[in-house]
Nucleic acid binder design. Structure first.
Length: 197
DNA sequence: CGACCGATTGACT
DNA sequence: GTCAATCGGTCGG
């Protein structure tokens, strides 16, 4: 498997373009003991100060700081008192744009992912491993320590994947948002079993 | 300072 | 289908 890291310029393009093109790419997490890889199958775009659903809608704060960084960093936030969610930051420094990773299809390191999830492997419901934004973070061991991580680094990054025919991609409104819920900024693989929902 | 609530999940009626 | 868990950010007084 060729883990060719995405370049900085990939992340500096328009956020909806980046979101769509993240589908099919590989999320890679390396530690001293294991290598975890998942194919991205579902994402959502959050467009900063012009998007009521975005954490950055009311400006730059300590919490959403990383959303304002230059594209190619990881924005990890803590929510509901127990979950982490991971976003890919896009655009130039000072412009708050990010793409939420909502689901991946596990490719490598599933044993570690189940261990990280803290549950027994369920043969009847294998998608439960990574079919949600907080589930994939737990499976990949992504938490507070990964907030602000550079995706051009070695610990966590995104690598080139398969070419995706546009006809395989579906769009919809975003899940779980109450404000700005009319925009169709969720992108996912049609018919892929690992998509959340 | 207190109240409210969230880009979710899992357990349960 | 409903609802609690659990806590830090945000907002009103």
């Amino acid at each position: 498997m060729n883990l060719s890291k995405l370049s900085r310029s990939f992340y500096l393009r328009p956020t909806l373009t980046v979101a769509r093109q993240l589908l099919g790419k590989y999320l890679v997490k390396k530690t001293s003991t294991h290598l975890l890889i998942g194919k991205i199958v579902e994402v959502e775009a959050y467009l900063g100060e012009r998007d009521p659903a975005s954490h950055a809608f009311r400006g730059r704060t300590k919490r959403n700081e990383v959303m304002f960084w230059r594209g190619g960093h990881l924005y990890v936030y803590f929510t509901y008192g127990m979950h982490y969610c991971a976003n890919v930051v896009t655009a130039e420094e000072g412009i708050a744009r990010a793409v939420l990773l909502r689901a991946v299809e596990p490719i490598k390191g599933m044993e570690w992912m189940w261990r990280n999830r803290g549950i027994e492997r369920d043969q009847k419901n294998q998608v439960n491993l990574t079919n949600g934004p907080a589930k994939l973070c737990q499976a990949f061991g992504i938490g507070r320590a990964e907030n602000g991580a550079d995706l051009l680094g070695e610990r966590v990054f995104i690598a080139e994947g398969e070419a995706i025919p546009p006809s395989h991609i579906a769009t919809s409104t975003r899940i779980g948002v109450t404000h700005g819920s009319e925009s169709k900024w969720r992108f996912y693989f049609k018919g892929n079993g690992w998509v959340s929902g």
